[in-house]
Computed example of a mutant assay.
Amino acid sequence: MKKLLYIGILFLIVLTYTQAKTTTTQSNSIEEIVVVFQSGSSKDLAKFFAQGIDININGNQGDYSKNQAEVVMRDFFKKFPPIDFQLLHKGNNSEQIIYYIGSYKSEETAFRVFIRGRKEQNEIKVYSLDIVKN
């Protein structure tokens, strides 16, 4: 009987740890995106992109593959190196669809950033990125 009790307690501990790890992974994804925007790394940002992504930078809009989107963002970060990025709002339309609004500042210009994504296997996959000059 004691063996069964110990196995039950061990199972609950493992289950609790797994749930906590999943929650931490989910909440860290947006924090990682914030850090990436602050550093201006297109390569790290591309890790969050879905296979196809819609990017709109001040009216220049296009549908890109993950690799093409990385090049577009590399050009953006090169032209407007980051000074600061702050997350202003986060929300979700459903269990799977999420969106974020941020403020991106470069030396010359400030931008509003709209990020839309899906939750897939405890990761955020960004499928739309709008960057609009303030």
Rank of each mutant, 00 (worst) to 15 (best):
M73T: 02
N134T: 15
Y99I: 00
K125S: 09
F80E: 14
G8L: 15
F80I: 01
P81S: 05
S27P: 00
K3W: 07
I13V: 09
D63E: 14
I83A: 11
Q86I: 05
K43D: 06
L45D: 03
S41K: 11
V132S: 14
E120Y: 10
A20W: 14
I57F: 06
I7F: 12
V113L: 07
V126L: 08
L87T: 04
T18N: 06
Y17T: 14
S42V: 03
K119L: 04
E123N: 14
D75K: 11
T22C: 05
V35M: 13
Y6W: 13
N93K: 14
L45N: 01
Q19Y: 13
F114N: 12
S29K: 12
K133R: 14
L45K: 02
F48M: 05
Q86N: 09
F37C: 10
T24L: 14
K21G: 00
K105F: 02
Q96Y: 10
I55M: 09
G117Q: 03
S94M: 05
L12N: 15
K3T: 06
L5E: 06
L10W: 09
K21E: 14
G40I: 02
Y17D: 04
L45R: 00
E108F: 06
S42I: 02
I53M: 13
R116L: 13
S106N: 09
S94Q: 06
L10K: 02
R74K: 13
N122Y: 08
R116V: 03
K105S: 12
F85E: 05
L4I: 07
Q51S: 15
F49K: 08
N56H: 05
I33N: 03
S65M: 11
I124S: 05
I124H: 01
A20M: 13
F111Q: 02
I131P: 02
I124Y: 01
I83Q: 11
I101H: 11
G52C: 12
L129Y: 00
S29G: 14
L15A: 15
F77K: 02
A110K: 12
N93W: 10
Q96D: 15
E32M: 04
N67W: 03
F11N: 07
V126S: 04
L10R: 01
I115C: 09
D63L: 12
N28G: 02
L5V: 15
S65I: 04
V14W: 03
T109S: 07
A50E: 08
R116I: 03
G91L: 08
I115D: 00
K78F: 13
V36S: 14
K43A: 14
H89F: 14
D130N: 06
P81Q: 10
E31D: 10
Q86H: 08
Y100A: 08
N122H: 13
I13T: 12
H89Y: 11
I97F: 12
L15I: 07
F114E: 15
I101K: 08
D130T: 15
Q86F: 06
